[in-house]
Design a protein around this nucleic acid. Structure first.
Length: 287
DNA sequence: CTCAGCTCCTGCGGGC
DNA sequence: TGCCCGCAGGAGCTGA
């Protein structure tokens, strides 16, 4: 489930269960995911209070009162599920009836408020690390990330500067987290469709006006997706157990051979492979 | 520096 | 039914 809107949705779902709450016990059920977990992980989490949950790109950052920050990445298949937290209309009551531990639940946080947070990741491309909060921005996974697409540092000027002279397909550069942080395959396809830009177009050969449009469509599609609770493929649930519904608003992603939805367009959505990943676009709308 | 290809891993759906 | 293949929302690493 993991592009920026899904990660932001997960962060929001975790916040009520985790922010200001102490971690009673961290149950570390394997030695690592994509990389080995840091030394002494359980001991460093046990008893720590979560101050706040932040998001940077596709990473969730949990600042702890131990002056360390826990960094989480969901990879391709990671999920965070919360159980045992009271419904909002039942203040102060926690029912503690947690579901059974599932296959691929690799890390489980037992919170002092009765909530249980399970990090489930079948493919194990996800990551979990711990680093001093004061130095978290220098973490190797964060240090070279580009600007947040929904932040003030992003716009057509950034795209122009970073695309200048580049012959790579614009699709590939938008997936490069050093150019813009947080986009993935779905939202790049959707933003390019809305901007009318062909995914194979050389990034350096897109005019200023079209880059302005692209910056706007990137912001728009991400904002709409966050408002929809992200996209739920293959029934993946968000942290609060609900399904996102932005997948119903896909215009091209996973719609190969379907008619283009642009009014008056007779085109058919095509699928091509670029740097090993599927791109979906309308040949009539996107140039 | 840039770029394409490979890699990690499990699960699912389609075709035979 | 079972098996095999391709594909999946990511991204670091390698070598040209």
């Amino acid at each position: 489930m993991p592009e920026l809107p899904e990660v932001e949705t997960v962060r929001r779902g975790l916040a009520p269960a985790m922010e200001t709450v102490r971690i009673d016990r961290a149950d570390i059920r394997r030695a690592g995911l994509r990389w080995p977990f840091p030394a002494g992980l359980a001991e460093r989490l046990n008893g720590a209070r979560v101050l706040q949950l932040r998001r940077r790109s596709k990473y969730i950052l949990a600042d702890l009162d131990t002056d360390e920050t826990m960094l989480l990445h969901l990879g391709m298949s990671g999920r965070m599920t919360v159980s045992g937290l009271a419904a909002p209309h039942v203040p102060g009551r926690f029912h503690h009836d947690h579901p059974a531990i599932e296959k691929h639940d690799h890390v489980i946080l037992h919170m002092a408020n009765g909530a249980r947070i399970a990090f489930n990741d079948p493919r194990r491309f996800g990551a979990l690390d711990l680093r001093a909060t004061a130095a978290i921005d220098a973490h190797p996974l964060l240090a070279s990330l580009g600007p947040e697409p929904l932040g003030n540092g992003f716009g057509a000027a950034i795209l122009a500067a970073r695309f200048k002279g580049r012959k790579s397909p614009v699709k590939a550069l938008l997936l490069d987290q050093r150019i813009v942080a947080g986009l993935g395959n779905i939202y790049v396809c959707e933003a390019l469709f809305r901007a009318g830009i062909h995914p194979a177009r050389a990034a350096g050969r897109i005019g200023a006006a079209r880059l302005e449009t692209l910056a706007q469509t990137i912001r728009a599609v991400l904002t709409e997706a966050i408002d929809a609770g992200g996209s739920s493929l293959r029934d993946y649930r968000q942290a609060d157990g609900n399904l996102g519904y932005f997948q119903h608003n896909f215009r091209v992603y996973d719609r190969a051979d379907s008619p283009c939805t642009t009014p008056g367009c007779c085109g058919t959505v095509r699928r091509i492979v670029q740097s090993g990943r599927s791109s979906y676009y309308c040949p009539a709308c996107q140039r």
